[in-house]
Design a protein around this nucleic acid. Sequence first.
DNA 1: GATTTTTCGTCCAATTTGGTCGAATCATAC
DNA 2: GTATGATTCGACCAAATTGGACGAAAAATC
Lengths: 194, 194
Amino acid sequence: MHEKKRDVAHKILLAAVKVFDRYGLRKTTMRDIAESAGMSKSSLYYYFKSKKDILSSVVKQESLTLTRKLHHAIQQDISPQQKLREYVVTRMHLLFELSVYYASLSEAYLEQYSFIEQEREAFTAFEIDAVSKILSDGVSKGIFQGRDILTAAKTIIIIMKALELRLVISKSMDELDSTVDTMLEILFHGLETR
Amino acid sequence: MHEKKRDVAHKILLAAVKVFDRYGLRKTTMRDIAESAGMSKSSLYYYFKSKKDILSSVVKQESLTLTRKLHHAIQQDISPQQKLREYVVTRMHLLFELSVYYASLSEAYLEQYSFIEQEREAFTAFEIDAVSKILSDGVSKGIFQGRDILTAAKTIIIIMKALELRLVISKSMDELDSTVDTMLEILFHGLETR
DNA sequence: GATTTTTCGTCCAATTTGGTCGAATCATAC
DNA sequence: GTATGATTCGACCAAATTGGACGAAAAATC
């Protein structure tokens, strides 16, 4: 039945992630995906109407995982400082795992696809909201200085994006973690009341 | 002069390694290399007569580095056991670094290029020779059992090639090192006189 | 300023690309 | 059985991309 149809579609998406990961989004062809999935190229079109459709599905799937896990990470009952650290570190690790999503954020040639642009904007909105909440919570608890929260949140997000670049270059998680720690050290002592 | 010509050729090779690394050998185009080198595609043909020529140059260059460093690693005045360990570990790390050479050994589609096949054979011959020398040294020192050295060397090389596969999958150097240690533990206690 | 070295834009035939379509195969029902 | 629908695939196409050729324009050297 179409129970199976969903399974096969999922199998195709897994295969697509594998080759996207290997060759990059631009270089991956429908033949590559078909080969990786162990079926003919024609069959792919029974489940997805285009290459764009496959990419879109993968991105949406990873986007869901990303925002869901990030949201979960900051639901813990911990201090605002810890929450901020948790958010940054979790975000780094997830963007490393969800490689297709990460590529979709950074590969310039994808600007032709409008759904990618939408996704980028939606994710930015999510981030501003999440970080803002952590900050305003910290302010109301007297831990962070009561300054312009939106601007502060945007600043943090900009710094995180700069860290992404390091992530691509070094690819060492431990090194990255300590960089994050160092950065948050600085960040906290600038934000905390004293 | 043609001092500069060699420099530019070298710059092109560096750029080629970068994109070979990123897209794989098959997926990399002359346009990619040109873009990465910051010059026009046509100009590449002033320095190299074909894509095959570029690949060949990179492989030969990395091949030289590989055998030179491997040779150096086993020139140290250490025990045969240590020498064997040194060889295996150094080999792993170098094959990880010299990614184009590694790809040239493993990517199947390259079988069309005869120089790759020659390179593979030459490297195998080098390995058999190197490992055999370590083994026969160990035998003459009474450390290894005096069995068929050639077969023993080939066995070790086969095991190393099996480890390469793990390397591609895990990509974690620390994990690999301990695997090598474990393997050599077993290997030594089978080889040593007791 | 003539000559040589180096770069590049443009062109081409060959291959590869994303995507279509109808026929073949498979499963499920009767 | 066989009729019906679900699923796969090979063959095919127009469009894009490929490796490579060539000569004209710059740069560098004399």
